[in-house]
Amino acid sequence: MADRLMLLDSASLYFRAFYGVPDTVRAPDGRPVNAARGFLDMIARLVTRFEPTHLVACWDDDWRPQWRVDLIPSYKAHRVVETVSSGPDVEEVPDPLEAQIPVIRDALDALGIPIVGAAEHEADDVIGTLATRATMPVDIVTGDRDLFQLVDDDRDVRVVYTARGMSNLAVVDDDHLVAAYGVHAAQYADYATLRGDSSDGLPGVAGVGEKTAATLLRAHGDIAGITAAAQAGEGMTPAQRKKVLAAADYLAVAPTVVEVVRTLDLPEVDARILPLAEDLAARTAAVADRWALGTSMTRAVEALGPA
């Protein structure tokens, strides 16, 4: 089997599991475990279908980095429930999900799946760095369209997009992006910058939606080209020129916020999926019993190939 790396956008997956799996089972301490069980079921299905040889759970050590907020104060501001001076802002997370995060980490550890995060950076940046430095094909599993910018056909970097559910996964390559959005992967970050994203608090260029953003990028290549054309008064309608010029301050900083960091100084991590050693197999059973993970842990163990 040829080597293939799978990178999990962990928060994207466990949020989806929390809202998609009924809250019918609880751990012995009373906490719900629907997100943890759903997350393990996702891993089992993904590993079975795509057969990665290497697997990493990428983590949000800082879901709203201050350096991004300094550039665009509205960045994810609507999701903040508490500002902490000594660390990352506290994100609005349902209490029943918050209680399951330690369970998810415990289960990943038992399965031997490394968890990788980076101070002052989001999981997106961890994914961007690991995908960029990978020496094998990469599947990025996420429900976040921002990571489409990492698609690279030449290096066989794809996105397994989960927004339509685990039974309707989309495998996103450059052809998919051109067909769906009218832009290439290398243009997607600029496309997202122009279009904006209310879920991330990115205003975009007022009056520029998806179609106009794609039209401008096809004509001028990137934001620098669009800005230069607007300043010269060439290659766009007067209305488009007015909108681009009015957003000059935003366009000067937003690309840095939207662009995924690909150069983090991350430690080397052994992400190989190996048959579970006897002690690790016993540990998965103990963790499953401790948190009432039941058949979800069993399916994950079987998919990962126990000894």
Rank of each mutant, 00 (worst) to 15 (best):
G235W: 08
H184R: 15
W67D: 15
T227R: 15
A110Y: 01
I72W: 11
L97V: 01
P255L: 02
P275Y: 08
L7T: 02
L274N: 12
G117V: 00
V269S: 06
A254H: 12
E120C: 14
T142I: 05
L46D: 06
R155H: 15
P102V: 03
R158Q: 10
G294R: 06
T162D: 09
T53F: 06
L55D: 00
G143T: 04
D89S: 08
T215I: 01
P275F: 03
P267E: 12
T237W: 08
P203C: 01
A239G: 14
T48H: 07
R16M: 04
R37G: 00
I104D: 00
G235M: 04
R26K: 14
M42H: 08
G38Y: 00
S12I: 06
R37K: 01
I223R: 10
D249F: 11
F50K: 10
V21N: 03
R155V: 04
R155P: 04
G294P: 00
P255G: 11
D156S: 14
M6A: 11
A134Q: 07
I223D: 02
P255F: 11
M236W: 07
N168H: 15
L169Y: 07
L46A: 00
I127L: 07
V157T: 10
P238E: 08
V157L: 00
W63K: 12
P94I: 02
V33S: 06
P102G: 09
A248G: 07
M297K: 01
V157F: 01
D289L: 05
V301G: 02
D190R: 05
R283T: 12
H54L: 05
D173Q: 10
A2C: 05
F39N: 07
A247H: 05
S74D: 13
D156K: 14
D95H: 07
G117A: 10
G201N: 06
D289P: 04
T83D: 03
G112N: 11
G30W: 01
A44K: 01
P102H: 05
F50T: 04
A214R: 07
V103A: 03
W59P: 02
H121L: 09
N34H: 05
Y161E: 09
G112Y: 08
L71F: 07
V261H: 13
D154M: 13
T284C: 14
V80C: 04
E51C: 13
H220A: 11
V171Y: 13
A286K: 12
A180Y: 03
A11Q: 13
A286C: 10
